[in-house]
Design a protein around this nucleic acid. Structure first.
Length: 572
RNA sequence: GCGCCCGUAGCUCAGCCCGGAUAGAGCAUCUGACUUCUAAUCAGGUGGUCGGAGGUUCAAAUCCUCCCGGGCGCGCCA
């Protein structure tokens, strides 16, 4: 197993069962009951959908039946006999049975449930719930919006994703850093400068035309007024030098607004790397040197080309244009070389769907430089379509009718925005229902999860108010928790036990939407429990057990919401 | 044309990577539950040829092939 789980949970239980099965198979093959290769045969150990099938189930007999030449159920009972003989007193496993077409189901004892609740309640908030045995040093680059205009709703989606990736990886034993690449160089800065110049002149009363390929948004009119106030009017015809200077000025202003907005969203970056610095540094020439030495560089039509077709790209790519300037790819390769040189052994980028065609050339370039391809990953964060009143909000940057990230946060708030983005997998285009996200009602899933946390806080407060001693984690033991037995209680504990495994699964697959789904499940189990099981009751021992279950539930809800960057309120 | 994403209940989606036991949620809709720790809640009903067709398998929403529909990308732009 690649992960160690410090608390009792379903993942550690599954690991225990898998080890038992491996040992049993070894026994059987060394006694000649099974052929030798049976030991290595693949099988799965998982949680059955139906709780009636026990806590853990395996298909080992089904997948082995054919090579062994036995009926699955017969083989299963053979294995069960060995397993039962090996069961020791400390095991969480209580009963093992053959079921259905040949599954082996494992049932757990009360000690397992008690340890789950205890372990979770005792762990401090922000604990490492799982420790990877092969930790990696991961760099996650995301958002990296052009400093030529306000950030849009898609940027908010990427920000939420990258932020959670970092936390997930750090909490599962890896070392992850976040980084923002500032595209403050190249033609777009010049375009930005020309656009600003035109707006400044217009603001000063000159009737000058706006550049055809300029950035039309109103934000540049505001910036132009600031520019006038700070730098004064512009005189005479523009030239390259002035456009670049004005472009730099505007980009710096826009960048600081982006930083502030991301901060408001709760997303921080460990480092901001500027494309301009990469371009002026030695990296770009180094990349060319390396590629040249390795034979992946050639000249054609006065330009320098990367032979990316050697690594499955559709066509070769220009790195240095015929006018001597660099394409976007060259500094980007230098940037990624820098990432690896800084010691990161796993580099993840979150890009928009418009960059999908860019992945292969980047991968090819890095491979040509000798970096292992598998250390470079790109997550495509798909588009967001905004819906209001059941209709699509048209998003035309050209027409200036787009919704900015700023406006989104004003509209729906940080918690709802983040939760909505994280509810869906990054690879799916997202329909963001503004009305639903704004709604402070039962229809809004984010409140459903938060409400569970607030309810628990209410119970704990109520207990204190009535003079009930709220037990600390250390005070509750297995015996006290053995009183938990109602179906709703058991279902809730079973769900809590999934948490460390769910977190690892989300981290490994980089799919935080699993956690959103999971926390809604925990909330659902809690709400059922709340309805059926009175916590603050007559029976003091039962009250203590349930208070402890409440604390463990609150801990899990808070942990998951925290991972997602959503607050866990005590009152709603 | 090539590449990627999507197609599962009326709507929005999970499940697919790594095949398992009667395919799950939420919304909508219908029926019930607040003198009790928060009803922003709960219990239950209705609703499915998992886009289609083949194939692999003891077993396919899941893996393979082909096809259909929707979205996006294929610059010496960034």
């Amino acid at each position: 197993m690649r992960y160690v789980y410090p608390t009792a949970c379903h993942a550690s239980l599954a690991a225990e069962v898998e080890a038992m099965l491996r040992a049993a198979l070894t026994d059987l093959s060394s006694s000649g009951a099974l052929p030798g290769q049976a030991e290595q045969f693949p099988f799965t150990v998982e949680k059955p959908r139906d709780p009636a099938h026990g806590e853990v189930a395996t298909n080992v007999a089904l997948s082995l039946a054919k090579v062994v030449g036995k009926a699955p159920r017969d083989l299963a009972s053979l294995i069960v006999d060995v397993l039962e003989a090996r069961l020791d007193q400390d095991s969480y496993i209580d009963a093992i049975e053959v079921a259905g077409p040949g599954f082996i189901n494992f049932r757990t004892n009360a000690r397992y449930l008690a340890d789950v609740v205890c372990g979770i309640a005792k762990a401090p908030l922000g604990s490492r719930w799982a420790e990877c045995r092969q930790p990696r040093s991961v760099l996650i680059e995301f958002v990296s919006a052009n400093p030529t205009g306000p950030m849009l709703v898609v940027n908010a989606r990427a920000a939420a994703l990258g932020d959670v990736y970092c936390r997930l990886l750090n909490r599962t034993g890896h070392r992850a850093s976040s980084e923002y690449y500032v595209n403050d160089a190249g033609g777009q800065i010049r375009t930005l400068g020309r656009s600003l110049e035109a707006r400044v002149r217009q603001a000063a009363g000159d009737d000058v035309p706006f550049p055809e390929d300029g950035y039309p948004g109103d934000y540049l009119r505001d910036l132009a007024n600031d520019y006038l106030a700070v730098c004064g009017p512009v005189e005479g015809p523009g030239d390259e030098e002035r456009w670049m200077r004005m472009g730099d000025w505007a980009a710096a202003r826009i960048l600081s607004e982006q930083k502030a907005l991301l901060e408001r969203y709760g997303v921080t970056f460990d480092r901001w790397t500027h494309e301009s610095a990469i371009r002026s540094g030695p990296g770009t020439e180094e990349v060319l040197d390396i590629l040249c030495k390795r034979g992946y560089l050639y000249e054609k039509d006065d330009a320098l080309w990367l032979r990316s077709t050697a690594y499955q790209d559709d066509k070769d790519r220009v790195l240095v244009k015929s006018d001597g300037s660099y394409t976007y790819l060259l500094p980007d390769l230098a940037y990624h070389m820098d990432k690896f040189d800084r010691g990161f052994d796993r580099v993840i980028n979150i890009w928009g769907p418009d960059h999908h065609g860019y992945i292969q050339r980047m991968r090819a370039g890095l491979a040509a430089m000798g970096y292992p391809e598998e250390n470079f990953e790109v997550i495509i964060s798909q588009w967001v379509r905004l819906l209001s009143g059941g209709k699509e909000v048209s998003m035309s940057k050209r027409g200036g009718t787009y919704v900015t990230m700023d406006e989104l946060l004003d509209e729906v708030g940080r918690d709802a925005a983040r939760f909505f983005f994280l509810m869906r997998s990054a690879s799916s285009p997202l329909d963001f229902d503004l009305d639903l996200a704004k709604e402070q009602s039962n229809e809004n899933p984010v409140y459903y999860a938060q409400y569970a946390h607030a309810r628990i806080a209410g119970i704990l407060e109520g207990a204190r108010g009535r003079g009930v001693n709220v037990p600390s984690a250390e005070e509750v033991n297995r015996d006290a928790l053995a009183l938990l037995g109602a179906p709703e209680e058991l279902a809730l504990v079973r769900r809590l036990a999934d948490f460390p495994g769910e977190m690892v699964a989300a981290a490994e697959s980089l799919e935080p939407h699993r956690l959103a789904t999971y926390v809604l499940g925990v909330a659902a189990e809690f709400h059922s429990f709340y309805t059926e099981c009175r916590v603050l009751g007559e029976d003091a021992a039962l009250t203590r057990a349930r208070l402890h279950l409440c604390q463990a539930s609150a801990r899990v809800v808070a942990e998951v919401l925290g991972l997602l960057g959503v607050t866990a309120p005590n009152r709603m």
